[in-house]
Design a protein around this nucleic acid. Structure first.
Lengths: 248, 248
DNA sequence: CATCCGCATTTTGGATACAAAGTTAAGCCG
DNA sequence: CGGCTTAACTTTGTATCCAAAATGCGGATG
């Protein structure tokens, strides 16, 4: 499990996402190997994986470069995620949920409901809400009966802000944030209802709307010169808690 | 370009798809290395790639196994492909086509039109039609303005019968086949029209219908014990011509 | 002074050696 | 005869070495 290659992969990915390696920077096998004090072999597999994840780009004979991820890229990844999650929801509605799946979804909804019922939500609750949200989306994505949906999704899952359950939080406007959480929560409830009634079309449409909501919310905050740098933005929202689930 | 690892990957993939390596068979680094007379290094990268493609499965300490691909799996992959292609078509319609893109699509349509206009189509024309079809789908998928669509698609692209432009052919019933090609062709025409008019919804809906048509056609032929073996089926339709574009 | 040829350095790909972990099987002891 | 232990083999992960390809620089030549 805790192989060296996986460790290298996790460390370098974190470095990229944290901005320690800036977009455009060169990154090579030997460099990474020396940096983390391992041989070139695990460094090599890690770089191959990072390329597949779309975080670095191979330049023919001159190493890899850190890919610059723009806000436009995030929009694109969210749109792909939306249709895939929509398909997952429809498939699950058509096939019917297993009792275990329904229990998981209901637990997730109960969790977020409880959080929203709290009078004065603390910052710490946000992490819990994110966790509940993540469970909801992951359950539908991976238990829908078409495992290729999740398979395809994993190809873009590592891109910042696309990860399942990632909601952008502005910690300075908790009131507004609470409203947003309430909307998201109600959408979860509606989706579960559609799933229970095996209404595939409604489940799909609602899920697509819900997934794209992440996008719309983003647009409220970002002053988009369309190629605005993503990484600072990524650091601004969602702290380590928001990333933990996807980075390790 | 023609690196050894890529060569190993192509060869082993062909072996799997051709049935030379049966589902359930064990496949290891050393085995492949010895088989193709290369070292373990390229064999390892090839196996990693094959696992990402979903053709083999890692069994903890006991090598990989060839995954058994059922008809149900093919249906699943086609459904994923359909929503991704639908998103691509919608995106392209909303963003508008570049003149080059429109030219490519029109050329593809002219090609298939010409083939269908031929009085007595020979078997050889089928390969040309497939090529035109492939160009049409690839153009939309990769030129739509959201490169992540193609990126996600590549994750499932290697699964048999999912590949772009793959249409199943029954060589014994050319008349019926011609009818089918005509339907597909007309759908291409409609999609191009929707793209030109920048009608995203119509482009998406038509493309989804069109992509799923591959699936419906499959169902006409396969006596589905639902877990019917895929590989014989794959060999029955589409000969080497149908696979060439995706395997090398 | 510009251009072209060639060498050196960088970088990757492949081969092999080595070590660790797990699996299988056989033998030994109860 | 059965269960447990151990030993050998399989398999994978990592390190290092070698070779090939490409790039960039520098010198020589027109």
């Amino acid at each position: 499990m805790g192989s060296s290659a996986e460790h290298v992969l996790a460390v370098v990915r974190r470095q990229i996402l944290a901005g320690d390696r800036a977009p455009g920077d060169k990154i090579t096998e030997v460099g990474v190997a020396a940096d983390l004090d391992v041989s070139r072999t695990p460094a090599r597999t890690a770089l191959a994986a990072l390329e597949a994840e779309g975080l670095i780009e191979k330049r023919d004979g001159r190493g890899f470069t850190i890919k610059s991820i723009s806000v436009a890229d995030v929009e694109k990844s969210i749109k792909v995620r939306a249709v895939l999650e929509g398909l997952a929801a429809r498939t699950m509605a058509e096939n019917g949920m297993s009792p275990e799946t329904e229990a998981k979804l209901r637990r997730s909804i109960d969790m977020s409901q409880e959080i929203l019922d709290t009078e004065e939500p603390e910052i710490d609750y946000i992490g819990q809400y994110q966790e509940a949200n993540r469970i909801f989306h992951e359950t539908i994505m991976y238990d829908c009966g078409n495992e290729l949906v999740g398979h395809a999704f994993e190809r873009i899952a590592r891109l910042p802000l696309t990860a399942l359950g990632t909601l952008a939080f502005d910690r300075t406007t908790l009131k507004r944030e609470r409203m947003r959480l309430t909307v998201g929560h109600s959408q979860h409830v509606i989706i579960l209802d559609a799933l229970a009634k095996r209404d595939g079309q409604r489940a799909e449409r609602m899920m697509i709307e819900h997934s794209n909501a992440t996008l719309n919310y983003e647009q409220l905050f970002v002053d988009k010169g369309n190629e605005a740098p993503l990484l600072p933005l990524y650091q601004r929202y969602g702290g380590p808690n928001g990333r933990r689930a996807t980075l390790d």
